[in-house]
Amino acid sequence: MFDLRPASPADRAALYRICLQTADSGADGTHLYRDPLLVGHIYAGPYLMFAPEHTFVLEDGEGVCGYVLGVADTPAFEARLEREWWPALRAQYPDPVNVPPHERTPDERLTHLIHHPSLHDPALLADYPAHLHIDLLPRAQGRGQGRRLLERLLLSLREAGAPGVQLGVGGRNTRAQAFYRHLGFSELRRTPGGSLVLGLKL
């Protein structure tokens, strides 16, 4: 029923859609954002553009229903985004820096990230230089497809020479936390906002 394949530029709209439909701690975040492209601009688009070799999609009879994406060298990726990805978006979306953080809308919070990206912790990058994101729509969940996607990406990262991979997961997303721990990920740190950074040696 499910086909796992490398992503292509033609999958961009599907990746953005799934990114939005899983943006509320794994639940549909469509109602949260006025601009439906913002989440994808941050968490999907740059990977498809700059790391297509580590971007895979899951497809069924209804279309693309999940993806996994990542990079083997996080510092190099973040530097490239600063040169080649963020400038055009910064010109499109004004920086809401003058709006107090507690008054920002969901769109403004994401727009702030475009102008002030959240970089990975340098203390973790020596052992875990790779990072990833994975999202599945409900119809693909609970069928072993998340594990399948993740294992395909981990193989790709190992082949690229990455010694370890990390990912972030929301503090409220206990289902995702349990999934990752079951696959061998362990907690590396907690952010001030309550999110977890999990890591796996490759």
Rank of each mutant, 00 (worst) to 15 (best):
G61H: 13
G142E: 06
G26Y: 00
A88N: 08
H41A: 11
I18R: 04
E84R: 15
R83T: 09
D28L: 07
A23W: 00
M49N: 07
G168A: 08
Y47G: 07
L132V: 09
R139H: 05
Q177G: 04
I42N: 03
R139F: 03
T191L: 12
V68C: 13
A123M: 12
A23Q: 01
G161P: 01
V64Y: 03
G45R: 06
R158L: 06
L132R: 04
D3C: 15
L200I: 12
L38K: 12
G146R: 01
Y47W: 15
L38M: 09
P96H: 08
P6L: 14
L89N: 02
D28N: 13
D60L: 13
Q166T: 06
A178D: 13
G199E: 09
E151P: 00
P122D: 14
K201W: 01
R152P: 00
I18N: 08
A162G: 05
R189C: 15
G29Y: 08
V57D: 07
L113E: 10
S186V: 15
R147D: 08
D24N: 11
L124K: 01
V97I: 14
S25R: 05
G164M: 10
R34K: 10
L155K: 09
R80N: 05
E62C: 07
V64Q: 09
L200P: 02
T74Q: 15
G26A: 00
D28G: 10
L110K: 02
L149N: 13
E82C: 02
E62R: 15
A10F: 11
S195C: 07
P192D: 10
I114N: 03
A23M: 01
R152T: 14
L20P: 02
F2Q: 05
H102V: 09
V39G: 00
R12G: 15
Y33H: 03
A72F: 04
M49H: 13
F2R: 07
E59N: 05
V57A: 06
L37Q: 11
P52K: 14
A13S: 12
G184T: 07
T174L: 15
N173P: 01
L69W: 04
P122T: 11
A130G: 14
W85I: 12
A76P: 12
P52Y: 11
V57N: 06
T55C: 14
F2K: 06
L188H: 10
P192H: 04
V71I: 11
G199I: 12
L132P: 02
L110I: 03
A88Y: 08
V197P: 04
P106L: 05
G40A: 12
D127I: 06
S118W: 08
A160E: 15
L198T: 14
H54S: 14
P9S: 12
R109L: 02
G45L: 05
A27H: 12
H133E: 07
F2E: 07
P138V: 04
L157F: 02
H133I: 02
L183N: 04
P101D: 10
N98E: 15
A91R: 15
R80Y: 03
E103H: 12
A126D: 07
Y128A: 03
